[in-house]
């Protein structure tokens, strides 16, 4: 899904800054360009630091942990976005209550209700069944 080719609507996505950021500049002028023999030695301030910052990214345990963390965060953000379970549940309840033709949906809804102990207009039956299952579980 993510690699799908989207219609190239032409323009808009490309960022075309009118000037380089400091990071861009550091990437460029500190280790590219002609080198001449500097006849005069002038001390450079902060360059060392900046250069190290801009250096090639070296993978480290910290990097890995950060990636792992990002992946875990992703999970949470994702389910929020995709339509969280509670929402899904509501939709299904509604479908089930409104029309008996949505058999599959209804069944799915019931399954979910079972799993989450949800309540709706079929409260009585629901309660009965969930208490039944509870007691079954209790006894088993």
């Amino acid at each position: 899904m993510t690699t799908a080719v989207q219609p190239a609507g032409g323009g808009g996505q490309l960022d075309r800054p009118s000037s380089s950021s400091l990071a861009d500049v550091i990437d460029t002028i500190l280790d590219k360009g002609l080198v001449i023999d500097a006849y005069v030695r002038v001390s450079l301030v902060g360059i060392e630091l900046l250069t190290i910052d801009a250096r090639v990214v070296v993978a480290s345990v910290d990097t890995y942990l950060r990636f792992a963390e990002a992946v875990n965060r992703l999970d949470i953000a994702d389910s929020d976005e995709k339509q969280g379970l509670p929402e899904l549940l509501d939709d299904m309840n509604e479908g089930g209550a409104k029309s008996k033709t949505k058999g599959a949906l209804e069944a799915a809804g019931e399954k979910l209700r079972d799993a989450f102990g949800g309540d709706d207009e079929e409260e009585e039956e629901e309660k009965a069944s969930s208490s039944r299952s509870r007691s079954r579980r209790g006894r088993g």
């Binding site: 500190l30 590219k32 360009g33 002609l34 080198v35 001449i36 030695r41």
Partner: peptide, 11 residues
Amino acid sequence: VLPLRFGAVVS
């Protein structure tokens, strides 16, 4: 333009 690397100083 031939750009020099940052920091080129001549007397």
